[in-house]
Each structure stands twice: as structure tokens, then as C-alpha cells.
């Protein structure tokens, strides 16, 4: 067996030295020309750690201009890159992960006690010595929010053509043959008629792809959870709005299909270990609408049951769905005017939102909870393939 000589790591202090004139090259290699695949086999968020180790060295030699310059160039390069890749989910997710990790590093190694509670003694030794970068932390946090918003916008645009078809039109239960994964984009207009051909499987596949990429990039699970929650909100809003405007989907069988689809999405969340209740609550109005389509709508007892069941839907929404409700065959009756009046009477005095349609543009505020890393900077290995051999390990 060949003996391998381990290079002594004990002298490495987890800093990276570079000449000021190499800053542009560093930014080019690490940000501008970086592709997520180039670091997929390394520790997640390697670019963020490398940048931080460079900042540490500039701090160590007490060169404030070098720290300023590196941080400004970094923020500048990330902004430009995002502008260039404004429709690219993978790139946006990758830089959200790295920006947030760089922000965590600036906190973890700030020397401020509140951020040091989980640090190892070695990590505490690695804290910044000369500079307080609190103001740059604020800039990075603002940048993170911008990147998050871009990520949500991209994901929503990609899902938009799928939602109505997958949730309301294609059905594995109703005997409608799923049409598979065809490329059409027109589900937003409510009177377009026929399905655009996306199945629930396609929508779930898309969600899986988003979630897998975020995990692979090392995005904090708390943040990817917020992305999924926002996307579920969007699925709820678009589906419910279509239901509130289209007679052809207000039927018992769509209600049954919808309920089944929502169960599948719930299963998906469970399979991905995502916070179920928190995310499912965004889709609750759609669950209630599906139940409303399925329950009996005849007696005063039915009316009372509907009123207690549909506590998130507004009176206006409940009444609208009942008015649009279309019997599937001659055995089923239309909802009578007096039944709808009963519902209106029962719901009188309920304080609620007066709007019929759900705001599809609403976004939940994003939070970036502090997530320190257990990783030790002195163990960081930089692959030769990154062409960063001008960085000196210190």
C-alpha cells in the first residue's frame, strides 16, 4: 500500500493572501466566470468561504482599503451577474446561497459575542481582528433580499403556465387523459378553454427540481423553505382565482381532483422534510374551495356545515363558487337561490377581506436566520481546477 504524505495543515490559519492587483482576477474566477457545477463536488458555498478567507487576511494585515475594495467588488460582481442571469434559477439560487453564507461568515467571525455562542475555540481564534464590518453585513443582507426576490420571480414565471392545467384541468381521477408535458403557456387567461397540457406530475417535478438545486447549492433549509412556501402561495392564488372565474371548473369532479392533487403536494412536502403546517396553511383556501365543491348543498344544515368549514374563504368567494357550481349530470341539482341566501344570512357580520380575487403578487417577507457553520476554515481545500493558485495560504 502506497504511503501518502499528508501535508501538515497545522500552520495554516485559514486565511488567503493575494496581491491587490489580483483582486480583479479573483473576482473573475470566483464570481463572474464561476459555474455552480465547478464547485459541486466541494463544500457547499465554497466561493463564499474563499472570499471570507481573503477578507480575513486583509483584516489581519490591517488594510482597510483592501477590505473595502474586495467587498465592494464582490457585491458589484454579484449584482452584475444576477442582472445577466435574470431568468436563470440555478445561478440565482447559487448566489443566494453564497451571499447568505458570506453574510453568516461575517457574523460568525465578527467577534461579537451574540454570534459566537456556537463557535469552536479554533473558530473564535479566527475572528476578525481589526475591522467591524456591520455596515457591510447590512449591504449583504439587502443584496440577499434582492436575490431572493429574483429567485421567486423566476420560479413563479416558470410555474405560471403549469398551475391551472396541473391543478384544475388535467386529471388522473376524472377520466381525463393527462396530456403530458407539452410546452404551452397560456393558463393565466381564464377563458382560454382547454388544458395547456401540464399534469400535476410536471408541476411536482418542477418543484422538485427547484428544491434539489437549492439544497445542492447549500442554501439554508430555512430559506428554501420560504421559497417553497411562497410558491405554494402562488399555486393557491392562481388556482383559486381561476376557480372563482370559470364555470367549467366549478364542479364536483374538479373538487375531487383538486383534493387529490393537494394530497399529492402534501406528500411531496413530507418526502422532502419540509415544514408541513407552515407551508400547507398557504394552500388552505384552495382546500376549502375543493371541499365546498364536494359537499352537499341543499339543506340549512348543509349551509351551516359549509359556513363552519369555509372559515378562510370570504362570503363573496363562497357565494361566487356556489353560483358558478355546475352539476355534472341530470342527477345532480343546481345550487338554489334560497340556499345561497341562507349562506349569506349565516355569514352576515363576519369581518373579512372584501376582495373576490386573491392577490397573486403578495410576497411574504423573507427572513435570513443566522446559521453558523461547523466547518473549520483551516481545513478548507481549494481545487486546482478553480485556477486560484495566485492565492497564498496563510
Amino acid at each position: 500500500r502506497q504511503a501518502t504524505v499528508q501535508r501538515k495543515e497545522k500552520d495554516f490559519e485559514g486565511m488567503l493572501e493575494y496581491h491587490k492587483e489580483d483582486e480583479a482576477l479573483l473576482i473573475r474566477m470566483l464570481i463572474t466566470e464561476m459555474k455552480p457545477q465547478m464547485v459541486s463536488a466541494t463544500v457547499p458555498c465554497l466561493p463564499a468561504y474563499i472570499l471570507f478567507m481573503c477578507i480575513r487576511h486583509a483584516d489581519y494585515i490591517n488594510d482597510d482599503q483592501k477590505v473595502h475594495s474586495l467587498l465592494t467588488s464582490t457585491i458589484n460582481a454579484i449584482k452584475k451577474l444576477l442582472k445577466k442571469n435574470s431568468e436563470d434559477f440555478e445561478m440565482t439560487s447559487f448566489w443566494l446561497a453564497n451571499t447568505s453564507r458570506l453574510l453568516h461568515c461575517l457574523k460568525q467571525y465578527s467577534g461579537e459575542e451574540t454570534f459566537m455562542t456556537q463557535n469552536s475555540p479554533k473558530q473564535n481564534e479566527h475572528c476578525l481582528k481589526n475591522f467591524d464590518l456591520a455596515e457591510y453585513r447590512q449591504v449583504l443582507s439587502d443584496l440577499g433580499i434582492q436575490i431572493y426576490q429574483q429567485l421567486i420571480r423566476i420560479a413563479e414565471n416558470m410555474m405560471q403556465p403549469m398551475i391551472v392545467s396541473a391543478m384544475l384541468e388535467s386529471g388522473s381521477l376524472t377520466g381525463v387523459k393527462p396530456l403530458g408535458y407539452r410546452n404551452r403557456s397560456s393558463s393565466v387567461d381564464c377563458d382560454s378553454g382547454g388544458p395547456s397540457g401540464y399534469t400535476l406530475d410536471a408541476l411536482i417535478k418542477q418543484l422538485s427540481q427547484f428544491h434539489t438545486q437549492m439544497s445542492e447549492h447549500g442554501l439554508d433549509p430555512e430559506i428554501s423553505q420560504q421559497v417553497v412556501r411562497q410558491l405554494f402561495y402562488s399555486i393557491n392564488a392562481v388556482s383559486l382565482n381561476n376557480l372563482l372565474l370559470r364555470k367549467d371548473v366549478c364542479s364536483w369532479s374538479t373538487g375531487m381532483q383538486l383534493r387529490y392533487n393537494i394530497t399529492q403536494m402534501e406528500e411531496w412536502l413530507r418526502g422532502r422534510n419540509l415544514h408541513l403546517k407552515h407551508i400547507m396553511s398557504t394552500i388552505e383556501p384552495l382546500i376549502q374551495a375543493a371541499q365546498l365543491l364536494q359537499v352537499k348543498k341543499k339543506t340549512i344544515q348543509d349551509a351551516e356545515a359549509i359556513c363552519s368549514m369555509c372559515n378562510i374563504l370570504s362570503t363573496q368567494q363562497i357565494v361566487k363558487i356556489l353560483n358558478l357550481y355546475t352539476p355534472l349530470n341530470e342527477f345532480e341539482e343546481r345550487v338554489t337561490v334560497s340556499f345561497i341566501r341562507d349562506i349569506q344570512n349565516l355569514l352576515q357580520g363576519r369581518t373579512e377581506n372584501a376582495q373576490l380575487l386573491v392577490d397573486t403578487k403578495h410576497t411574504f417577507p423573507v427572513l435570513f436566520p443566522y446559521t453558523p457553520s461547523a466547518l473549520s476554515l483551516e481545513t478548507m481545500h481549494i481545487p486546482a481546477s478553480l485556477n486560484l493558485d495566485f492565492l497564498g495560504r496563510v
Binding site: D64, V67, H68, L71, T72, I75, N76, K79, K80, K83, K84, G111, L128, K129, N130, F131, D132, L133, A134, E135, Y136, Q138, V139, D142, L143, Q146
Partner: peptide, 30 residues
């Protein structure tokens, strides 16, 4: 053991101020 020196706050422009400085304009674009 020496007490660490207090760190010097590095002033940074806000992201909005950086935008105003046209820092993020792409030189490549026309």
C-alpha cells in the same frame, strides 16, 4: 493575555447608494 483592541467600523455605502453611483452598470452593455 492581551485584551483584543476594539474593531474599527468600516463605513459602507448602502446598496441603494451603490445603485445611485451606477456601480452595477455593465460596461459591456451599449
Amino acid at each position: 493575555r492581551l485584551l483584543p483592541r476594539p474593531r474599527v467600523l468600516l463605513k459602507a455605502p448602502t446598496l441603494a447608494e451603490m445603485e445611485e453611483m451606477n456601480l452595477f452598470e455593465d460596461e459591456d452593455s451599449p
